[in-house]
Design a protein around this nucleic acid. Structure first.
Lengths: 342, 342
DNA sequence: AGCCAGAGGTGAACCGGTAAAGTGCTGGTT
DNA sequence: AACCAGCACTTTACCGGTTCACCTCTGGCT
């Protein structure tokens, strides 16, 4: 099918341009040592021959890799990804592309598999760095990845990421804002549907929720820890709305659960927001597609992803290493929140 | 941070095991030429030293790459991906993982960028093959990728993919089934909200829709070509429902547009399915999260992705090359379709 | 004239593997 | 005894770049 395709190498370019391959290499890495004229001639020849440096060879000798790894850990059952990740990935990509880097993506089933994967990637020098998401309490990835010396940035509050530089949003403050907003509307029974109990940011949000409710003299114990899938959100919502003194407002940890929650309310004959107010998180396009559109704690996930990529570059080439806080999610009121019915 | 990390190479393993590096290489590629005993000793030493073959070096000399590329082309505005792609990607991954291959993902803004990207990836030997999606009429990728000799499989009807082996579903039949189902329910004014006009599978579905409607003696011209984003679906739906003899049933080209359509119906005070029936495509978890849940033409997107990956392996190692049809999307009736109101 | 600095290269030694040809030994034939 | 096949390795030549020590001019200064 593609027989004897005579691969063009740096040697061909060098020969044709009448220089040594060292010169070609210098020219292509814009390093000093070649005159402007020669440089130009080299480029011309390269274009003419259609030559591009062989990335594999390049990274073998320069010990640099233009690939970063991202493993996302979801149970097998939950096949797709949340909208959050799609936007997040596209944000990462946008910055990676600036440096013509690429993203190596893999979905894994558990943290052990994730560690093994990173180990293979790193030891096999497939990636130059990694992006770590979804931190758990006492996350086993921290010691493992630290031991192997993999450059990485974490997504999550610095208190969770075991010393890895992280990019994070102030979820605690955002939760407090959400709670105060709902309380100001007149809600007193506010519930929260969160992610899995062991997950770091769920913990932070859960605690912040409790504190904020307590400060207002309200009962902050209406919290459910569940998965992140829509069905989890549906089940949790159903449970909450069937309790005797059911909440009049529910805060969700992502948007897909909130959408599911809205459907459950409809199915139970409850009107949003009169009977129950719903507040989503992560505000993807999903929130604008329901009726009523969902109020959300929104943040620029695309930008977030970009900052993560930038931070990773900092770590990889040693110029960075500090954690970075990106803007706190802010309330975007839409139709799904309002004063509770008298 | 990670100073003088003494990289362990095949030489260290060879030395410690008292053999040549050739022997280690053979052992690790389970090639004949090493005795069982030696083989075992080599493995033991490798484990002890924590050595894994350096992928970059390996692929430099073996001219094999364990990475496949996937570029997805979306306008910048549409930041996230559709649920379809998430499931599709996870399906690809599941098969790639069997061969410890990885997926290199990139979001691009247009086909020119996509071609350039593939060219860089292929010439730089970063990828061993590629997956091509979203074929257009006279797709410029076909001649370009063919010229560079990149092994690739296409997603889409063979008539669209310009000779690239493809994996595809019989959309035409599925559309016909959808139309006949709605007609059987009593609908006579059926509309379709499709993807962009130039997109190959939109064309196929559009034509099939027209044919199926004509066969039933119905007017098949109620079709809108739009984007794939929720907002596109919302706008299209609004347009359709505001026409004087508005449709009583709408078929969508994906699920996110259908969800948006449901919201529009609600916003206009129309009841689903009494006033208008909605039928989605691609059936992700989204369809089960609305109220009423959306009927859909569903197919196993995860499995679809897996077959695509398998086909690509076939192309790469020359054992395959034929197109493969996967099961036709089948109707999954839920709450969003029903007889039209009298 | 003699000396030196620096620009503009060259050439060879890597990087860490794979592949194919070569070597030494053993055992079975004729 | 001579010969040969086959196993179990070893040796060596790559793969296609980067890097660095070293060479060769040229021009300026004393």
């Amino acid at each position: 099918m593609n027989p004897a395709s005579p691969r063009i190498t740096i040697n061909d370019v060098a020969a044709r341009a009448g220089v040594s391959k060292g010169a070609v290499s210098m020219a292509f890495n814009n390093r000093p040592g070649v005159s402007q004229a020669t440089r130009q001639r080299i480029f011309d020849v390269a274009r003419e021959l259609g030559w591009t440096p062989h990335q594999t060879a390049r990274s073998l000798s320069s010990r640099r890799v233009d690939i970063v790894g991202l493993a996302i850990c979801r149970p097998a059952r939950l096949l797709g990804l949340e909208p959050f990740y799609m936007e997040f990935i596209s944000g990462i990509e946008s910055v990676l592309a600036e440096r013509s880097c690429s993203l190596l993506l893999r979905l894994v089933r558990d943290l052990r598999e994730e560690i093994t994967l990173y180990e293979g990637w790193w030891r096999g020098k497939m990636i130059g760095g990694a992006i770590l998401v979804d931190f758990h309490d006492d996350d086993p990835r921290v010691p493992a990845l630290r031991a192997m010396g993999l450059p990485a940035v974490a997504v999550g509050h610095p208190s969770l990421t075991g010393g890895f530089p992280s990019v994070w949003t102030d979820d605690a403050t955002a939760v407090a804002e959400a709670v105060r907003y709902l309380a100001a509307l007149g809600h007193r029974r506010i519930a929260r549907v969160g992610g899995p109990a062991g997950l770091g940011h769920s913990g932070i949000r859960g605690a912040a929720f409790g504190t904020a409710m307590a400060e207002l003299g309200l009962d902050g114990r209406r919290q459910v820890a569940t998965g992140f899938a829509g069905e989890d959100g549906a089940r949790a919502t159903r449970g909450l709305l069937l309790t005797p003194d059911r909440p009049t407002a529910i805060v969700y940890d992502n948007d897909i659960m909130a959408v599911a929650g809205a459907a459950v309310a409809a199915e139970m004959g409850l009107t949003v927001p009169d009977d129950v107010s719903l507040l989503a998180w992560d505000d993807s396009q999903l929130c604008r597609l329901t009726h009523p559109p969902l109020s959300a704690m929104s943040h620029d996930v695309h930008h977030f992803g970009g900052e993560v990529a930038r931070a990773l570059f900092g770590v990889i080439d040693g110029s960075g290493g500090e954690s970075l806080q990106v803007p706190t999610p802010s309330l975007t009121p839409r139709g799904s929140t309002g004063p509770p019915r008298r």
